[in-house]
Simulated assay, not measured.
Amino acid sequence: MTTTITPPVREILLDCVRTATAAPSVHNSQPWKFRVRGGRVDVYADSSRHLRVLDEEGREQLISVGAAVFTLRLAIRSNGYRCDYTLFPEPGEPDLVARVTANRPAPVTAAAEALAAAVPHRHTNRWPFAQIPVPREALDRLRDAARREGAVLAVANPAGRDAVLRLARHADQRLRRRPGYRDEFARWTGDRVRNDGVPPRAAGPWDALESVPVRDFTEVSAQHQNGEPFEPYPTVLVLTTASDRPVDWVRAGQALQRVLLTATWQDLATMPISQPVEVPAVRWLLIEPGSGLFAQMVLRVGYGRTTEGTPRRPLSEVLMPSHDSRTDGSVRARRRASGGSV
């Protein structure tokens, strides 16, 4: 007996792509494009949105694209289909980061349903958090979420937390002195009406206690936020991988998004602390040299106020023609690696 596999119709996959665009990205640059063909979706890195001063190697861009890949996988799964994916499937197309293929129908699990429901509610929260400890059970769920995507999530102890925050403040100062940094930063911030970047309403205040290194997204805007005291002892997490290749950066992005959605499902607020991983010399100091791990992202988690999301590009801007196999840019290296399934 032959079993016929019926992939989802194109309209369902287009809706899944629209959901994938809700993924987080550095400066809300949304550096991705998608091509839908039959039952598969190819996910590309958009080189025109690569922050070349802040992210010379393209590491953070691939983390952002990885977050979109996970969100796409989750959207397909929550629509009642299993899916497989392969990372860097075509050596001759270096911008092609992932190929996600929807196959046989399958019942939606409670876990997939819960994470999918969290997607529209996940927002970066740059405001003070309540001085309430995050329960150990909640942190265990976040660690498990990272593990499921092949990453390791470490919770910093008090000494480690203070060290990470010092390194973050030091990295922020170094970034501000980097040639071209302020001009690039200004491109993605400000008062202009747009469908990407970080608008002033999402910027949050600066920390009056100077304990949490919040990036000042209003410094190039006419609207400046006042200072507010942040929690003096934030919960700080470090997301790591066992290797540090481009494929690991994509996997880190998938793990990051699963962690963020798991946090959202638990009513936890989250804020990436990106500065220490954006300066290579500082990034290497985040993890013990003998651990065999590589830091990919630092997160602050806690209980915070409800925040608004940042704008998103419409589907028409991120969808590539289904008949054209060419890409429109170049990621730095040609990579290929196997992925997995949801």
Rank of each mutant, 00 (worst) to 15 (best):
T189P: 01
M271G: 00
A75Y: 00
T270V: 15
W32P: 02
G329S: 06
V100W: 07
S316T: 15
R178Y: 06
Q61W: 01
V214K: 02
L167C: 00
W265M: 06
H27G: 02
G340F: 06
N195F: 11
P107R: 14
A20R: 03
P200A: 11
V97I: 15
L256Y: 04
G160K: 04
V41Q: 09
L153R: 02
G302Y: 02
T235W: 01
V282L: 05
V238N: 03
R245H: 14
V247A: 15
P289Q: 09
T262C: 06
W32N: 03
L299R: 07
P289E: 11
P272G: 04
S325C: 03
F70K: 08
L74Y: 09
P229M: 10
T307E: 12
V69H: 11
V36D: 03
R147Q: 14
S221D: 08
R300L: 06
T307I: 08
V108E: 07
V53S: 11
E149K: 04
V134G: 05
D42C: 10
T21F: 02
G339M: 02
Y181Q: 11
S29K: 06
Q173A: 11
G197C: 09
P213R: 02
R148V: 08
R313T: 04
M320Y: 15
L51V: 14
R166Y: 03
R215W: 12
W265T: 13
L319K: 09
L14S: 11
Q223S: 06
L51H: 14
C16A: 15
R77Q: 13
P105Y: 13
L256H: 05
G340R: 03
P289N: 09
T241W: 05
R176I: 09
D172N: 10
D248R: 07
L142V: 04
P272Y: 04
R141H: 12
R148C: 13
S221M: 07
G329R: 02
T307Q: 07
Y181A: 13
G339H: 01
A130E: 15
T109Y: 10
P314L: 03
F230T: 01
P128A: 01
S211F: 00
L54M: 14
